[in-house]
Every structure is written in structure tokens, then in C-alpha cells.
Design a protein around this nucleic acid. Structure first.
Lengths: 149, 149
DNA sequence: TTAAAACCTCAAGTTAAGTCGAGGTCAAGG
DNA sequence: CCTTGACCTCGACTTAACTTGAGGTTTTAA
């Protein structure tokens, strides 16, 4: 039987199918997010599996997951078998929590902002938004929301 | 009468009161977000007003507003009088919309993710999350959510 | 008066997530 | 055969938002 569906993909094919730039694919490989083998002429050859990973990378990034976190998450996948639906489920459930947290914090910020729009109190020392240590802070939002450390 | 409450602030005092690093304050000034005058010895002297601005910068950044956008917003403030509550209200109302939009997009992403957790379909080509052009795209979410351009 | 603390400028470094280009190799088709 | 397009590596560049450091000046407090 012919096996065109099993054929490995060149980097150009992966780029086209994933919608990513070739340079981004190189980059992800350098970062350890995906792997490839090389053919006789030193060109990359990717298993089709890589398209799945790339799709997941794209989605996870939209939820605010960094490539570093993705690398860590991928590291928990089984080494010697292709990840199955349950594996992906586990990862995406984790991201769901992160996403939830982000939404919760932003919503809280929005509510505070609403309150402060009414009185123009952003300008005042009493504004709760200016003291994230109080309410926002207690719930893990505070300054950590968008700041690296 | 002594006027300690009107006294101008040194950069160190501003740093302490705002919770920002001195270098960040220099940086914001270089970016045109705040201004200072210089004393005889070329040291910065800030009006107390600057604390307000810095507090607003911190809040706005948490909602995902960039320094560039902040500069633009500040540019709409009146030149020759201190901004009043109504001025700040106008700005924060605008940010409220941005924030709303971000929350809406993330929530949509979360709902999709929920759906996909159930079936592990992130791995499948049919997953709506993999085709942001469909539903998410129509509502301005899609790839533009966290990507610079 | 003098030493330490705070300030100044300017350049360079940092991180994330890539992009761009140079200089060279490989593969496919006419 | 040979040209063109796809690939290769590696280093440099990009943007945002700052930080760090060097080398020098000013302020402050004992």
C-alpha cells in the first residue's frame, strides 16, 4: 500500500499546513518544543505529529501560556509513545485553570475600574485599584497579573 | 505657613511613594509619560501630581495598556491645568472598553477550551480552537488576541 | 569640612518570541 | 546538466519595558 499519509514532512510543508513561518518552526525546534530528524542532505523531516503540537502551541499561546511553560508541559508527556487524547486533555485542563485565573483577575480589575470611573477616584489615594495589596492582592491578582516577577 | 504638602519630590521620594524603581521613573520621563523640572544642581523635581500619573500608569498597564497607548491618552489631557476627575474618568472609561474586549475574547477561548477538554480534540483538525477564522475570528478575537500585529 | 548617600547621563544588557539576511548546500524538473 | 527554489547555519536585528553599570556631580548630615 502506498503510505502518503505517513510520509514525513519538510519544514516548508509544515509551515504551510500550520500557518507558521519557517523561521518560527526552526525557533520552536531550537527551544525544544518540537523535534525533527534529518535526511541524508541534512534537511529536517518532521513526523505528522508535529502539526498537532504546533496547533496546541498556537492555542496555548493565545491563552497567555509562554513557550517556556509549554516546554515544561510537553516535558510531562510520555517519552516513548505518541501522546493520546487523555494526555492532551490533562495539559489543556491545566491551561484552562491558568486562563480562568487570568479572566478572574481581569474581571476584578474591570469591576474596580467601573467603581472608579464613577468617582474619578483613580486620582485618589483611597482608590482600591491603587492598593492591589488589599483585595486584588489577596486573590493572587495584584501586581503579578502582567508583570514578569 | 509651612507648605510641606506642596513640596516638590525628588526622584527617590517618588520611587518610594510610588513603589517604582528610580530607573523606571527615569524611563517613563524619557518616554514622555511624566515630566519634571530640574533644580540648580540638575536634579529632577517632581510635582506631587506625578504620583497620580504613576498610579494610573500602573493600573492601566495591568489592564494590558501599553506605555505607548498611555502616552497617547495622556496627550489628550489639557495642557495648562491639572487634570480633574472628569479627565481621568474619560481615560479610564476608554480603558474599560479595552479591558472588556480582552475579557470577552479570553472567555470565549475558555469556553472553546472547555469543549475541547472533553474530547481531547485539540489534537484534531476539526477543533474550533484550531480555526480561529470561524467563530473567534468574526468577533475580533482570533490571532489578534495576544499578538502584536 | 568631609564622607556617604543620592543623583546625573549614557550606553549596554535583559527577556520573549521571533524575523531577516548572508553565504552556502541540496533537490527537482526541463 | 544546470538552474531555480527550497533548505541549511549563524549572527544580528526587532519591540517592549525596563535594569545595570560606569564614571562623574550634588546634597546631606555628622
Amino acid at each position: 500500500m502506498s503510505a502518503p499519509l505517513q510520509r514525513e514532512l519538510s519544514v516548508g510543508e509544515v509551515a504551510q499546513r500550520s500557518g507558521l513561518a519557517v523561521s518560527a518552526i526552526h525557533f520552536y525546534e531550537a527551544k525544544g518544543l518540537i523535534v525533527s530528524r534529518r535526511n541524508a542532505g541534512n534537511q529536517r523531516r518532521f513526523a505528522r505529529e508535529v502539526l498537532r503540537r504546533l496547533a496546541i502551541i498556537k492555542v496555548a499561546q493565545r491563552t497567555g501560556i509562554s513557550l517556556g511553560e509549554l516546554r515544561e508541559a510537553f516535558a510531562t508527556l510520555p517519552e516513548h509513545r505518541a501522546p493520546n487524547a487523555a494526555d492532551w486533555r490533562r495539559l489543556s485542563a491545566g491551561w484552562r485553570e491558568t486562563l480562568d485565573e487570568r479572566i478572574r483577575c481581569l474581571s476584578q480589575l474591570r469591576d474596580q475600574l467601573d467603581h472608579c470611573i464613577g468617582c474619578g477616584c483613580l486620582s485618589l489615594a483611597e482608590c482600591p485599584l491603587r492598593n492591589p495589596g488589599d483585595e486584588l492582592g489577596e486573590q493572587g491578582c495584584g501586581a503579578r497579573l502582567l508583570e514578569p516577577e
